[in-house]
Design a protein around this nucleic acid. Structure first.
Lengths: 117, 117
DNA sequence: ACATTAGTTGAACACCTATTCAACAAAAAG
DNA sequence: CTTTTTGTTGAATAGGTGTTCAACTAATGT
C-alpha cells in the first residue's frame, strides 16, 4: 500500500491521465472561466444581456421590458458590471446600460446556436 | 393613473422598449440558454469538460486527475450526460466519457479567449 | 461462491444565489 | 424647499447547488 491516494480508486490509465494533466490550466483559470459562464447561467441575466445586445437601455426600460422590479434589475446589472460584461453612461438621473464588448454577443450567439439543434 | 404597471416606474423610452421586445425570444429559450451556460458555470465541471476535450477518460481517471471522489465526478457527469454535453461508452465495467460534440469545445474556447485579455 | 473494484444513486448537509423589501442618495420638477 | 422619480444598496428569505456518505449494482478475478 505505497500508492498515494489521489482518489478512492486504483488508477487506471496512468499514461493518459498524465498526458492530459500536462495540458490542463491552473485551478484559478477554471474558477475564472466558471465565474464568467455563471453570469450567463441565469434566465434573467441572459434576457438582460440579449436585450442590451439590441439597444442600450436604462434600468426602467429593462424593468418594464422584462416585467421585473428596478431593484432586481439593478442587482443583476451590478453583477454584470463588476465582471465587465456591461458598461453604462449616466444622463441626468437616468443610467443607460449597454454591452461592454462583442465577446458578450459572441457567447450568447454560440449558446443560441447550440440550443437550436 | 391609467397606466398599466408593468414595473415600479413610469416607462421611459417606450419606442425603444417595444422595438427591443419584438426581437426577444420566448422565456423558454432563455431558460434553456441559462441551463446550458449553468453547466459551464462550475469549476469542477469545466475542468472535467476541458480534460475530456483532450482525451476520453473513465470516472477513475477523472477522479485521480482532478483530486475528487468517484461519487463527485459521477454526479457531475450525470448532469453533463443529461444535457448531452458528454457521451460515454462502456467497456467491461469501465465507463469512458468523452465530449458529445464540437460545440462544447467551441464554448470552452470562447470562454478561455474572453478571460485572457 | 466469494471478494474486489468501477460506477451509480439518493439523502443529508452546508453553501450559494436571486428576488423582495425598505431605506437611501441624487437629480429634476413643482 | 418640498416632492417625485431613477437608481442603488443591504438585509432577509426562499430556493437551488455541490460534495460527502453510505448503500447498492454489475462485472472481474480468485
Amino acid at each position: 500500500m505505497e500508492s498515494i491516494s489521489f482518489c478512492d480508486c486504483d488508477v487506471i490509465h496512468e499514461g493518459t491521465v498524465e498526458a492530459v494533466r500536462s495540458t490542463l490550466a491552473g485551478q484559478d483559470e477554471y474558477v475564472r472561466l466558471a465565474t464568467l459562464f455563471k453570469l450567463f447561467g441565469d434566465p434573467t441575466r441572459v434576457r438582460i444581456l440579449h436585450a442590451l445586445e439590441q439597444h442600450e437601455l436604462c434600468v426602467c426600460d429593462l424593468a418594464a421590458l422584462l416585467g421585473l422590479t428596478k431593484s432586481a434589475v439593478s442587482h443583476q446589472l451590478k453583477a454584470l458590471r463588476l465582471s465587465n460584461l456591461v458598461k453604462f453612461r449616466k444622463e441626468a438621473q437616468v443610467v443607460f446600460y449597454s454591452l461592454a464588448d462583442d465577446h458578450v454577443k459572441d457567447i450568447l450567439d454560440i449558446g443560441f446556436s447550440h440550443i437550436s439543434e
